[in-house]
Design a protein around this nucleic acid. Structure first.
Length: 562
RNA sequence: GCCUCCAUAGUCUAGCGGUUAGGACGCCGCCCUCUCACGGCGGAAUCAGGGGUUCGAGUCCCCUUGGGGGUACCA
C-alpha cells in the first residue's frame, strides 16, 4: 500500500505542510515559566459552575505567571450545537470579569470574532488545518479511512440516538461486534478509489499501536502519577463530515496555539492514553495537564452525582437573578479551588482575589459537593466588606433589573438609602445582614412607608398602660442631638419612671421588684417604629428616619391599639 | 463486564511516620446585649473496613467496601 498515494487521494485539496503551519504559529515569546492556558467550551449551553471552576484555574495560572489565557470554541459537533450559545458563553464570562488575552470574542457588531495571532479560535473554522495533519498521518501509515455505506451510517447514527436515550449497554457483545465490523484495517487503494468514486464518506481512524497490557506513566499536576493502559483502539480522528473529534482537535489546537497547561475535567482522564498516542504520532510535545475534580450534588438516594445542567447552581447566569453578587460566586469558587484561600481572605480583607498566591499544589484531588450554606456565608462576608456606597450602587443596578418598585425608592432618595445601608457597616466586625441583593428589600423595608407592613402583635400583648405611656412620652423625650449613650440613658429613665428596671443586671437579680426591664421598653419603641421585633439598633434606625417619621410611626402604632 | 480515579465529622478541608487529629460552613448551648446581626466562649460530630511494613500509621503498601468518571462519527 502506497500511503503517500492514499493520502493524496483522501485529501486532494490539502497543499499546506505541517512545517508551514509550524512557521505560521511559532512558539510564543514569553518569559520563562509563563503559562499558556485556555478555556475551551463547546457551545451547547450556558457556562456551567464546573466550567467556571476551570476558568478560574486557567486564568489564575496564566496571569499569575505572566502568560496567556485564551478562549477557544469547540464547535465540532453541529448536531449538539445550540444557536447563540457561543456568544452567550462569552458574555457570561465577561460579566464575571474574566479577562481573555486572546481567542473568540464578541465584536463591535455583536457577532463572534477572533482576537489574537493563533486563530482561528473556533474549531469549525479550522478544518483545513486539521486536514494537513490528517494527511500527514495517513501518508505515514498512522491513520486510515473507513468507508461506510449510507445504510451503515444510518445504523451508526441510530445507535448514537439510542445512546442518547440512555439505554447504553456495553455488555452487549453484539453491539461491540457491530462496531468492530465497521472498522477495517485491510483494504486496497483500489477499493478506496471505488468508494470515493461512489461518493461514499469515510471516517479517518488512527492505526493504534498500543498494547493494553502495557501501562504508560502519566503525570498529572493535581492527580499525580497515574498508570494507564496503552491505547489499542482505532478511535476516530475525522468524522464523516471531515470535522475532527475532540481528541484530534485537542492535539492539533493545543499544539498550534502553544498551550502549556491543559485544564479540563477529570472525565477526560480515561482518554489520556489516546492523547499520548496522538501527540506521539504527530510529533508534538505534550502540554502539562490538570484534571480537575468535578463539582457534585446529592441525588435522591444520597449518592453523589456530577452537578449537571439542570441542577440548582449549575448555570452561572442564575446567580445574578437570585441576587448573588458575582464576586461572591468567584470567592466561593476560590475557596473550593484552594483550601487556604479563606485563611488568606481573612487576613487580607480588602485585597482582590487576583492577589491571592494561587497554587496548583493546594488544589483538591477529589470532587466536592456544592454547598449553598457555604456560598451564602461567603457571600455575606463579601457584601460585608463593601462600603455602603458600593452596596448602594450594586443594589441599585440589581433592583433596576429585578425589582423596579424597590429601585425607584432607592433611587429617589440616595442619601437615605446609603444611610440605611451604612448601619453596622465598616469597622472590624461589620454586620452581615445580607448574602444576596434579593434579601435586602425585606431586611430594610420598614424604612420605607410604602413598603411598611407593621406587625403590632407585640404591642397588643404587652401591658397596655405601659405601651400607651411609652408611645405618648417618647416623642417628647427624643432629641436628635443625643448620642447613643444619651439616647439610651433617656430610655432607661423612662423605664425607671414606668416601674421597669433601667439596668438588665438589676432586673435579673431582683425581677420581682420590677414590672420588667428597659428591654421591654426598648422593644415597645422598636415595634412601634419598625413594625417588627427584630431590627438593627433602634437608636440608629430612629436617627436615620428622623423626627418626622418617628412621630408618624408612633402615631400609627397608637392608632392600631384602638 | 472492563478500564480508571477518589476516600479525615453532615459539607469544604489542614495533616505529608510520633498531633490532646487543626480550621471554616452548618447545628446546639452559654456570654455580650434594647431585639436581630456581629463578636466571644464552649459542645456534639471525622481518619470507611481488614490486613501488612514499622518501635510507632490518618499519613506508606495490599485487599475489601463504598462512591465518581469513562467505555460514541459527544465534548
Amino acid at each position: 500500500m502506497d500511503n503517500k498515494k492514499l493520502a493524496d487521494r483522501l485529501f486532494p485539496k490539502v497543499h499546506m505542510t505541517p512545517e508551514e503551519l509550524e512557521a505560521k504559529f511559532p512558539p510564543r515569546k514569553l518569559p520563562e515559566g509563563a503559562k499558556v492556558t485556555r478555556f475551551a467550551p463547546s457551545p451547547t449551553g450556558f457556562v456551567h459552575f464546573g466550567g467556571m471552576y476551570q476558568v478560574m484555574i486557567g486564568e489564575r495560572l496564566a496571569h499569575l505567571s505572566g502568560g496567556i489565557f485564551y478562549l477557544r470554541i469547540e464547535d465540532t459537533d453541529s448536531k449538539r450545537e445550540v444557536s447563540d450559545a457561543a456568544r452567550r458563553l462569552i458574555q457570561t464570562l465577561r460579566d464575571y470579569g474574566i479577562n481573555f488575552d486572546e481567542g473568540a470574542d464578541i465584536g463591535e457588531d455583536g457577532t463572534i470574532c477572533d482576537k489574537g495571532e493563533y486563530g482561528p479560535y473556533r474549531q469549525s473554522l479550522r478544518a483545513n488545518i486539521y486536514h494537513v495533519y490528517a494527511k500527514k498521518l495517513v501518508s505515514e501509515g498512522k491513520a486510515y479511512p473507513v468507508f461506510t455505506s449510507d445504510e451503515e451510517l444510518e445504523a451508526v447514527l441510530a445507535a448514537d440516538k439510542k445512546e442518547e436515550n440512555k439505554t447504553k449497554d456495553w455488555e452487549s457483545e453484539a453491539e461491540k461486534q457491530r462496531l468492530e465490523t465497521l472498522k477495517n484495517r485491510n483494504f486496497t487503494l483500489d477499493t478506496v478509489e471505488k468508494e470515493l468514486a461512489a461518493g461514499h464518506k469515510f471516517v479517518l481512524r488512527i492505526l493504534a499501536d498500543g498494547d493494553p497490557n502495557k501501562k504508560t506513566i502519566f503525570d498529572d499536576l493535581v492527580k499525580g502519577r497515574l498508570e494507564i493502559p496503552e491505547n489499542d483502539e482505532d478511535f476516530v480522528l475525522l468524522k464523516s463530515d471531515g470535522i475532527p473529534t475532540y481528541h484530534f482537535a485537542h492535539a492539533v489546537d493545543d499544539h498550534l496555539m502553544r498551550t502549556t497547561h491543559v485544564i479540563r475535567g477529570e472525565e477526560w482522564l480515561p482518554s489520556i492514553a489516546k492523547h499520548i498516542m496522538l501527540f506521539r504520532y504527530l510529533g508534538f510535545r505534550m502540554p502539562k495537564y490538570i484534571h480537575t475534580a468535578q463539582i457534585m450534588r446529592l441525588d435522591e438516594n444520597g449518592n453523589r452525582k456530577k452537578l449537571s445542567k439542570r441542577d440548582l447552581g449549575a448555570n452561572m447566569d442564575d446567580y445574578d437573578e437570585k441576587g448573588y453578587p458575582r464576586e461572591s460566586v468567584t470567592e466561593y469558587l476560590m475557596t473550593l479551588i484552594n483550601s487556604n484561600f479563606e485563611e488568606w481572605r481573612a487576613q487580607n480583607p480588602s485585597k482582590l482575589y487576583t492577589e491571592f498566591p494561587f497554587s496548583i499544589k493546594k488544589m483538591s484531588v477529589s470532587g466536592c459537593l456544592f454547598d449553598y450554606d457555604k456560598l451564602m456565608d461567603v457571600s455575606k462576608n463579601t457584601i460585608a466588606r463593601m462600603s455602603a456606597r458600593q452596596v448602594y450602587d450594586r443594589l441599585l443596578s440589581w433592583t433596576k433589573k429585578y425589582d423596579t418598585e424597590f429601585y425607584i425608592l432607592l433611587n429617589d432618595n440616595e442619601q437615605y438609602a446609603i444611610d440605611i445601608l451604612s448601619i453596622g457597616r465598616g469597622g472590624k466586625k461589620p454586620r452581615k445582614d445580607f448574602g444576596t441583593w434579593s434579601e435586602v428589600r425585606n431586611n430594610i423595608s420598614f424604612f420605607y412607608d410604602t413598603l411598611f407592613t407593621p406587625d403590632y402583635e407585640y404591642l397588643k400583648n404587652a401591658d397596655k398602660q405601659t405601651v400607651l405611656s411609652v408611645l405618648s412620652e417618647y416623642p417628647t423625650l427624643y432629641d436628635e442631638r443625643d448620642d447613643q449613650n444619651e439616647w439610651f440613658t433617656k430610655l432607661k429613665s423612662l423605664a425607671s419612671k414606668l416601674g421597669y428596671a433601667p439596668e438588665m443586671k438589676e432586673y435579673k437579680e431582683n425581677p420581682e421588684n420590677f414590672k420588667g426591664s428597659v428591654a421591654d421598653i426598648a422593644m415597645i419603641l422598636r415595634v412601634a417604629v419598625t413594625g417588627r421585633q427584630q431590627s438593627p439598633d433602634t437608636f440608629e434606625v430612629i436617627r436615620i428616619m428622623g423626627r418626622e417619621k418617628l412621630t408618624k410611626r408612633v402615631a400609627l402604632a397608637q392608632k392600631s391599639l384602638f
